[in-house]
């Protein structure tokens, strides 16, 4: 009887895993299989034509990269500040817990709310209209918890002798940060940024009211009224109202490019991430 239940348990859990892996392979498989046909040098380097039915996605890729670069610049100082605050400057357990709660709540805020916030503040109050800068800032704020936590985890695992040596030399907190903590933990920042940007690259909700349009933009030259094209919004619009087979072909191609970009970013972050999980086991 117990044997029987044990077998059943193993079978059932294995079925769950196979199902999950099946879903994953299906998703990637379909995108690669359908999207591969659309990929060509011309598709990647031509601009959008006839509402997505012809031409390529050059400016969509450029727009997404502009948004990511802006998010990166916004996020680095903020995330570093938050992580150092938690790992170095806050001495009381209670204040650290509060900061952690703040990071969790910020991490949980749905992305559409960032979009609405951006619509109120940047588009309407600052009267920027749709602007790449608004989108970049919003994405940067959205990924802030991911980046801050990755850096923070690394700071927490710094070898104690380093910290003690710094303290023994009589360094102040700031001297300690610049000469020991940051140089030793910058890898955590990089991992966090890769993970964060992978998430930001695929987000549609924060940028659709604030930064991106479907067609008719290329490289922005200012801040006001300077939207960009982007990959996720391109897919979002085409998915809704395209029954044209030529557009469908481009749609799959764009999905493949976006998926490739996201997976590449997460793949680069993967070794550090798995390391972390494996260490947690010991």
């Amino acid at each position: 009887m117990r044997r029987c239940i044990d077998r059943l348990f193993v079978l059932a859990t294995a079925a769950c895993l196979l199902f999950a892996l099946g879903v994953i392979s299906f998703i990637v498989g379909v995108i690669v299989w359908r999207g591969f046909g659309a990929l060509s040098w011309q598709f990647l380097t031509d601009q959008i034509r006839s509402a997505g039915a012809a031409g390529g996605i050059f400016y969509n890729i450029v727009g997404t990269l502009i948004l990511l670069a802006t998010a990166l610049i916004v996020c680095v100082p903020l995330a570093t500040g938050l992580a150092l605050m938690h790992g170095v400057y806050l001495k009381k357990q209670r204040s650290r817990e509060r900061l952690w709660l703040f990071l969790s709540v910020l991490n949980g805020v749905p992305s559409i709310l960032f979009g609405l916030f951006g619509l109120m503040v940047f588009v309407k109050f600052f009267a920027w209209g749709k602007s790449w800068l608004a989108g970049g800032v919003l994405l940067g704020l959205m990924i802030l918890p991911t980046v801050a936590v990755a850096l923070l985890e690394r700071i927490k695992t710094l070898p104690r002798p380093y910290i003690e040596a710094a303290a023994g030399l009589g360094l102040s907190d700031s001297q300690r940060v610049w000469s020991v903590v940051l140089p030793q933990s910058v890898g955590g920042l990089v991992t966090g940024l890769l993970l964060g940007l992978a998430r930001a690259a695929g987000e549609t909700a924060p940028i659709m009211f604030t930064a991106t349009i479907f067609a008719g933009a290329n490289i922005p030259t200012g801040i006001k009224e300077s939207p960009v094209l982007s990959l996720p919004y391109h897919i979002f619009v085409l998915a809704q109202d395209s029954f044209d087979p030529a557009a469908a072909e481009n749609l799959w191609g764009s999905a493949l490019v976006l998926l490739g970009l996201v997976l590449l970013l997460s793949l680069l972050a993967l070794p550090a991430r798995l390391n972390f999980h494996e260490e947690a086991e010991k």
Binding site: L17, R199, G202, L274
Partner: peptide
């Protein structure tokens, strides 16, 4: 364990618009 974990971790990041697309088409 490691390859499975890696695949799952990677795929946790597939953008929601891609899921939406598959939802619409399939």
């Amino acid at each position: 364990r490691l390859p499975v974990k890696a695949a799952v971790e990677l795929l946790a990041g597939v953008p929601s618009v891609v899921y939406g697309l598959l939802g619409i088409l399939f």
